[in-house]
Design a protein around this nucleic acid. Structure first.
Length: 556
RNA sequence: GGGCCCGUGGCUUAGUCAGGAUAUAGCACCGGCCUUCUAAGCCGGUGGUCGAGGGUUCAAAUCCCUCCGGGUCCGCCA
């Protein structure tokens, strides 16, 4: 509803400006809670142009602004022009939410999105850095779907690099740890292989041979690689499932080997040069001084070229192509994007996120220095179980387990999107295990409270919305109205942390409403009106939680 | 050495792209609220020269320059 309001105000303002014969290319609308529902700073912008005082301009414009169905009041406050929503706006918000229900938050987005995320090398389990990628990616998927897009998520599987060759070589030389989850067992092998190779660099020859045999199409070696990758991926997939992350498709890098010649041929007319037998692309026209090698002098392919081929393939199958990548891929992504542009293909939209490190420093799968997602999930769920057990001792064991699971995953996922993606994070066990703050469980709690009220009565859809005039009620309705605008923001700016913040505000507003506005014990008419609002708030809370991949529990 | 990202109360953090009215929350700390729909909650309070210094502007956390601190990238690795 807020989007409608904003569009409406834009129109009113443009008309008023026209009547004043003022230019109207920038309406300078901003939202500043505490002052108004929407504010225009247009008077400031026009002051130097018109050589008039801002206050005067605001006054002149306001002459042509009046109240209507959506706008209760448009008034100046010095140079500011403030717009306030009407009762109709509030009424419409509630009815819209109740009617749209699960679809509330949709913004009529059309088309297919291919969203690549996680894509961790299958040489070990996902650690807490990888799942920042997974959670951001999966949250985007859910938001894009809520917006209306058809979304296909892809995991790009590196099945032929040096790292996988090392794993394969390790499997050939060391015994797999018995009884371990496959991805963890793979990491053990990988760590051993790295240590061994570091100690005896001559053994690298064997690893290199494996890579060459793979690329030359040696069936036996291909199977070894495939087995190793699938083995590790099974474990990774289990972790993702536990995190409520599901990929629609796993795309194997080696599938693009055949496309490389064609792509290099097509690049011939766009600044490709040969140098000592290898093939380079000159990206200096784009301000990248270093040439990008697209084929080695021994004729074998490089990762970058396969990645380009992958993106060419994706581009042909969707309207929007989005990648979620660690900030260390910034240069690579830029290079890939520029080469795609040379091929007349739009570069992907890339969402970067900064690193997650440990208090003692950065993580390294190679050295076995990392905290796995499995370990975090396990400990957090365990802690959540203690909390449930403490608060709800009468619940059955199954119920406690289920709630602990939902709360643990919710807390973990929320922590991953809470802070802006371009801020690096230091993982802290105390923080991860602390539920006494406005995190995932806080949101779930608000939802559980709303559900609790609704299970104690029936809502027959008969209500008088105009009774909802208290500040807590109005605040809650206004926040519900904002949800589609938040979805729009996430789908255009990928600001998942804004979604997290919105969820927190919504839950807070509901908790305030819950504290001060009795629902079941109110007068019948008031009770029905508040019941409508609880139903509405629960829908929005549930949809927000779904977008965050956090289970909206009915009880906790 | 060069590129990119970050630097906001003791700690974590919003706002920075599109400069405007009292700088956002949480944790911690202090004080209140459970005979009333789940206290994983609510209300109030203490605490900030927005890394430093210049500049642009009627107006700067936000834009420009310099510097400092932290991270990261700069492979015929993936």
């Amino acid at each position: 509803m807020f989007l409608t309001f904003r569009k409406h105000v834009e129109q009113l303002l443009a008309e008023a400006l026209e009547k004043c014969q003022y230019p109207s290319n920038d309406l300078a609308l901003t939202v500043k809670p505490g002052y108004a529902d929407l504010t225009s700073l247009i008077a400031f912008k026009l002051a130097p142009v018109l050589k008039l005082k801002p206050q005067e301009i605001a006054q002149n414009v306001a002459e042509y602004l009046g109240a209507d169905e959506l706008v209760a009041l448009a008034q100046t406050a010095g140079p500011y022009i403030n717009f306030f929503v009407s009762n109709d706006y509030l009424r419409h918000t509630i009815s819209t939410v109740l009617q749209a229900d699960r679809n509330y938050g949709g913004i009529d987005a059309k088309g297919v999105v291919i969203l690549e995320h996680t894509s961790a090398n299958p040489n070990g389990p996902l650690h807490i850095g990888h799942i920042r990628n997974s959670v951001i990616g999966d949250t985007l998927k859910r938001c894009l779907q809520q917006a209306g897009y058809r979304v296909e998520t892809q995991y790009y599987v590196n099945d032929m690099g040096r790292q996988i060759a090392l794993v394969v070589w390790g499997i050939m030389n060391f015994a797999l740890t018995e009884g371990k989850k496959s991805d963890h067992a793979t990491a053990d092998i990988y760590v051993k292989a790295n240590a061994e190779v570091e100690l005896h660099p001559t053994k690298l020859v064997e690893v290199r041979q494996l890579m060459q045999r793979f690329e030359s199409g040696d069936q036996d070696v291909e199977w070894l690689f495939k087995d190793a990758v699938e083995f590790c991926l099974r474990g990774i997939n289990q972790t993702l499932k536990n995190l409520h992350v599901a990929h629609d498709r796993f795309v194997w890098e080696s599938e693009f080997l055949d496309d490389i010649d064609g792509i290099i041929a097509e690049l011939r007319s766009h600044g490709v040069t040969e140098c000592d037998g290898s093939t380079h692309v000159d990206l200096s026209p784009f301000g990248i001084s270093k040439n990008l090698v697209v084929r080695r002098s021994d004729g074998t392919s490089v990762y970058a070229t396969r990645d380009i081929a992958y993106h060419v393939w994706k581009a042909g199958r969707c309207n929007r192509m989005i990648d979620v990548l660690g900030a260390d891929h910034r240069l690579t992504a830029l290079q890939v994007g520029k080469v795609l542009e040379l091929l007349s293909i739009n570069a992907p939209e890339v969402v970067f996120f900064e690193f997650v490190s440990l208090p003692e420093g950065s993580m390294s799968t190679r050295r076995g220095h990392f905290i796995s997602a499995d370990e975090v999930l396990e400990k957090v769920t365990e802690k959540a179980y203690e909390e449930v057990d403490k608060r709800r001792p009468t619940l059955s064991e199954d119920e406690k387990r289920a709630i602990a699971q939902a709360v643990g995953i919710g807390a973990t996922r929320y922590d991953m999107v809470r802070v802006s993606a371009d801020k690096s994070m230091v993982f802290d066990w105390n923080e991860a295990l602390d539920f006494e703050r406005q995190g995932g469980p806080f949101l779930q709690y608000a939802h559980a409270r709303a559900t609790s009220i609704l299970t104690k009565t029936t809502f027959d859809n008969q209500y008088e919305p105009d009774l909802l005039t208290d500040e807590y009620e109005v605040k809650l309705i206004k926040l519900c109205a904002l949800f589609p605008a938040v979805i729009e923001d996430v789908t255009t700016n990928f600001s998942v942390s804004a979604l997290a913040a919105y969820a927190r505000e919504l839950a807070e507003a509901f908790n305030q409403f819950y504290r001060f506005m009795p629902v079941l014990s109110a007068e019948p008419a008031m009770s029905r009106a508040r019941l409508a609002l609880v139903t509405c708030a629960r829908i929005v809370l549930r949809n927000v939680l779904n977008c965050l991949g956090i289970e909206p529990v009915d009880s906790m």
